[in-house]
Design a protein around this nucleic acid. Structure first.
Lengths: 255, 255
DNA sequence: CTTGACCTTGCCGCAACGTCAACGTTTCTA
DNA sequence: TAGAAACGTTGACGTTGCGGCAAGGTCAAG
């Protein structure tokens, strides 16, 4: 048999056959005078065996091992291991599909920040009613960031606290007022340390934060110092100052 | 933020961040005077978004598309498509696991020919009782080959026919006698065209084949001429002649 | 001054082949 | 009998999502 005949009878491509030669899985047959490989029945048998094993999901190196020690008893081990591996893959796929369905079921209400946790989605849609605001947009992004990197437990605690705090339309409206106050500081003179609007915005922001957040030692779980510096660097100086003051006032309130 | 800080806060490796730069997924930030990349909050936000998307199973090119047209509406399409893809993968994994379990449940009785169909496994274990025989071994191999390459329907028909034909111990014993007769021809003089043992073996083999195989127009479904030639080339000339005669006698019996 | 922990660019490796390229051989057909 | 179609040969690059290494430059602490 030539390589093409072998390939079609066993149901693989000629490239695959040559690949197996290269890896040493299938012995090279004799050559005809013209250089063509000349296969025998044994090659077809071995190739079919390789195909059976690969179709089960074995890697070619595992196939080589199985073919090498012809014990036949080692195969069971490999298959057990493979089954466990497939079980893990199946579980992973199922989990991803569940998350996907959770996203797709809330048809059409995908936040612009991309796919986030159900809790955060609820929070974002609840707070969606309000004027356009750069600070609100940044806040949503940061929440999405925290949502992504926090551990599942702290994520749930944080989002639950925020979710219950902004359930009512009045709370949402107050939050948007805070956003507006902060937005107004975008062009504030950084040298005017006593701009009364800074203090006003800080006070409003601190008032806006729910007490349920007080036990949270870390408002941004998983996010360290460098993140906070980046956060403050990303907003206008006066805005950063207002947020810093609000944080101080908020933690003071805890005592 | 430097690249290491960014990486740990978002939960990826620095290599990943640079990779995303290379692919254009994440914009290159400003550089510090020393050449270090200097990231801002926006980079962390985008990187987290990329992580969310990849964790759902999107490829990086799809991530790029989603990030590019910020419609947010296109995302749903991609996710639907992805879900369908995952469903296919899940089905494939389940099928392979079922085959695996079918193999592993018959604990310890894995044929040396490797994992074959349940039907063939039954046939092989049924015929396992008998003396060691090269011809029997080759026959098992060829059956495994056919089992691999035949279409599911013809595979089932063929294996069912053989399985019912060799259910009884007497039928199995007769088959082993045929193997012995064929083995004895291994060193037969190819020039002695009238060796009576050739005809004896052919007759025994033809008698051994069950009538249920007669409707099968093709005894080796999916295997063509070149395979048959390889088969005959793989055995001793006298053995090949005996098998050829047996096939003729068998098909004549059909009329 | 050294050590260690950062950062830089760049290139190879993986798994299992697909897909050219550039060329020789066989076989069918006009 | 010529030419095209359909085989075969070796060799090398492309795919995916990074990991790992080489060969440095930079910076803070002891």
């Amino acid at each position: 048999m030539r390589i093409g005949e072998l390939a079609v009878t066993v149901g693989v491509t000629t490239r695959t056959v040559r690949h197996y030669h290269h890896l040493g899985l299938l012995p090279e047959p004799e050559r005809r005078p013209n250089g063509y490989r000349d296969y025998t029945l044994r090659h077809a048998v071995v190739l079919a065996r390789i195909r059976r094993l690969t179709e089960l999901g074995l890697g070619l190196t595992e196939v080589r091992d199985v073919l090498a020690d012809d014990a036949g008893r080692d195969l069971a081990e490999v298959l057990e291991e493979l089954d466990a591996d497939l079980a893990r893959q199946e579980a992973a796929i199922r989990e991803r599909r569940e998350r996907l369905r959770a996203l797709l079921d809330r048809e059409g209400s995908l936040p612009a920040e991309g796919p986030v946790s159900p809790e955060l989605t609820a929070l974002l849609t609840g707070m969606a009613h309000g004027p356009e605001s750069p600070m609100a947009a940044r806040d949503r992004e940061v929440l999405a960031l925290i949502d992504t990197v926090a551990s599942p437990e702290s994520r749930k605690r944080l989002m639950a606290a925020l979710g219950s705090a902004f359930e009512t339309p009045t709370a949402v409206a107050r939050a948007h007022e805070v956003y507006a106050l902060l937005d107004a500081l975008a062009d504030a003179d950084p040298d005017d340390a006593d701009d009364p609007r800074v203090d006003e915005a800080a006070r409003a922001l601190a008032d806006c934060l729910p007490d349920s957040l007080l036990p949270e030692t870390d408002l941004a779980p998983g996010l360290d110092d460098s993140f906070l510096r980046a956060l403050y660097a990303d907003v206008a100086p006066a805005q950063a100052e207002a947020i810093r003051r609000a944080m101080r006032m908020f933690t003071e309130r805890g005592r």
